[in-house]
């Protein structure tokens, strides 16, 4: 149910405008039927995420700060870099959400900022390229064995410590 609620929440403003125009000259009964059918259609949509194996959702601070959670695609990066570059040289721990990455650290040239600085890769002003997750998605490695076997144990870390 959570997914349905989120869909309704995130699109409610746009849906309202659209439907006020759409409902012009439609009878009461018909509008109720459209509502029922629409709801059924939403329920028929595939609910499970089909994201790529090893996509990491990082939601330590994003939700609390009103930002979409960041999504890190492992597959995209391993085509260009070997694991060693990030996990040995840059000090990324082998744990989703375990690095407590903040924008301040990135701008400082740490973590993602070692490449995403406008020199090796695009710079941090492209907010939406990383912060592209569905709001409220918990920190996770998508498709991981742990995620499939055990209930997610990750929690938001709230506001970053200064």
């Amino acid at each position: 149910m959570c997914a349905v609620r989120d869909i309704i929440k995130s699109h409610s403003a746009r849906v309202l405008v659209f439907f006020d125009e759409f409902m012009e000259g439609v009878s009461m009964f018909k509008s109720a039927m459209i509502g029922l059918l629409g709801m059924l259609a939403v329920l028929m949509l595939p609910q499970a995420a089909q994201a790529e194996y090893a996509d990491v959702v990082i939601n330590n601070y994003a939700d609390a700060a009103g930002m979409r959670p960041a999504v890190f695609p492992h597959w995209y990066h391993r085509i260009r870099f070997r694991c060693k570059v990030c996990h040995a040289d840059l000090g990324f721990k082998l744990k989703a959400g375990g690095n407590k990455i903040t924008m301040a650290k990135i701008i400082d040239g740490k973590f993602c900022g070692a490449c995403h600085n406008g020199e090796i890769s695009w710079s941090v002003e492209n907010c939406g390229m990383c912060h592209s997750g569905v709001p409220g998605t918990p920190t996770q490695i998508h498709g991981s064995t742990v995620q499939r076997l055990v209930a997610p144990t990750y929690k938001s870390l709230g506001k970053p410590a200064k």
């Binding site: 995130s10 790529e52 597959w75 492209n126 939406g128 390229m129």
Partner: peptide
């Protein structure tokens, strides 16, 4: 398998940046 970012259930399709990302 290998869904494109806007359809994969993790990326927000209402976000412009999602549509710039490369499909796997």
């Amino acid at each position: 398998r290998n869904a494109a970012p806007p359809e994969d259930g993790i990326h927000d399709s209402a976000n412009d940046g999602t549509h710039v990302l490369q499909p796997p």
